[in-house]
């Protein structure tokens, strides 16, 4: 690919808009995941007694188990959410730009 073509794409407002959007969305997703995970770690350090509390009177299952399993399921769902976003917002723009520059 020639330099001029590359710079033509780089200057395209739609391409610049795409970069901004993708960066913002992927960073937000990453931050959400980190907040969830490190909140859990901090709970382990500072809220051990809460995590050890049974979810009902006489139960053996406690909040720690529910939250722990919950984080595993959340991790999977959030990757699904990103796919959904990328399929509906990212890919169509990529297709459009590739067509525009016939690549």
């Amino acid at each position: 690919m020639k330099k001029e073509e590359i710079y033509q794409i780089l200057k395209d407002p739609e391409f610049q808009e795409l970069i901004k959007k993708v960066t913002a969305v992927s960073l937000s997703f990453a931050v959400v995941m980190m907040v969830v995970y490190y909140s859990f770690i901090l709970m382990l350090a500072y809220a051990k007694s809460f995590l050890s509390t049974p979810i009902c009177e006489g139960c053996a299952t406690n909040y720690g188990i529910v939250i722990g399993i919950g984080i595993i399921i959340f991790s999977w769902l959030i990757t699904g959410a990103y796919i959904w976003w990328a399929n509906t917002n990212y890919d169509p723009v990529v297709r459009k730009l590739r067509e525009k520059f016939r690549r």
Binding site: S26, L27, F29, A30, M33, M34, Y37, F40, L44, I65, G68, I69, I71, I72, S75, I78, T79, Y82
Partner: peptide
Amino acid sequence: LIYSIGFLVGWPIIMFL
């Protein structure tokens, strides 16, 4: 379980970044 959660949470990060 804490260990397994740690092993899993890297995956969303790989996906996003």
